[in-house]
């Protein structure tokens, strides 16, 4: 039975017909919508490569049933940049060499955006490392990833200050 699903993805409203109610959000993003920036690493919620934001919270898209998020706002790596300008987390990952092969990078960045928003880790490297430990990086660019989250946290705080 075909089911209809509405999602706001990276700011655009989308209406989708799903033949299979068991389709994961990850497969919908990659295979239906061509948003291949979100990666399939393990397909069982353990590597973090498929991390996206659902209503601002970080979620493994491979374990999220698309239908159960009807009406949700989804942000993927493709929707993070602000026009031509990189999001501060994206810029920090380049500046701090927060990757090698790049395959886990979209998931790392989405996870970092949410971690900073959660405001639990602040500028404590130990808590940042814990907070990012759901996103595996086999190249082990963890030093750069931690630095990038620290730098981006500072940059975003500065932005907020200026806005206030």
């Amino acid at each position: 039975m075909t089911q209809t699903l509405q999602l706001k993805i990276n700011g655009s409203d989308l209406r989708l017909d799903l033949d299979d109610p068991r389709a994961t959000l990850l497969d919908v993003l990659r295979e239906r919508l061509g948003l291949t920036g979100t990666k399939k690493g393990c397909d069982r919620g353990q590597c973090g490569a498929c991390t996206v934001l659902i209503d601002g919270r970080r979620v493994n898209a491979c374990l999220a049933l698309a239908l159960s998020h009807d009406g949700a706002q989804i942000t993927t790596i493709e929707g993070l940049a602000r026009g031509e300008d990189l999001h501060p987390v994206q810029a920090a990952f380049i500046a701090d060499d927060g990757f090698q092969c790049g395959f886990c990078t979209p998931g790392q960045i989405m996870s970092a955006v949410a971690l900073i928003a959660e405001a639990e880790a602040g500028l404590d490297p130990e808590r940042i490392r814990e907070g990012m430990s759901g996103n595996l990086c086999r190249c082990a660019a963890y030093a750069g990833i931690t630095e990038a989250v620290l730098d981006a946290t500072r940059a975003l705080a500065l932005e907020e200050e200026r806005a206030a």
């Binding site: 990659r30 061509g34 948003l35 291949t36 920036g37 979100t38 990666k39 399939k40 993927t76 790596i77 493709e78 993070l80 940049a81 990189l86 994206q90 810029a91 990952f93 380049i94 500046a95 060499d97 990757f99 090698q100 790049g102 395959f103 990078t105 979209p106 960045i109």
Partner: peptide
């Protein structure tokens, strides 16, 4: 210098084989 594809990696534009249309 950073990795040659750095801007592509952080925006999700870098294509791996499973990403090719």
């Amino acid at each position: 210098l950073p990795h040659d594809a750095a801007p592509l990696h952080v925006t999700g534009e870098a294509r791996y084989i499973d990403d090719l249309p």
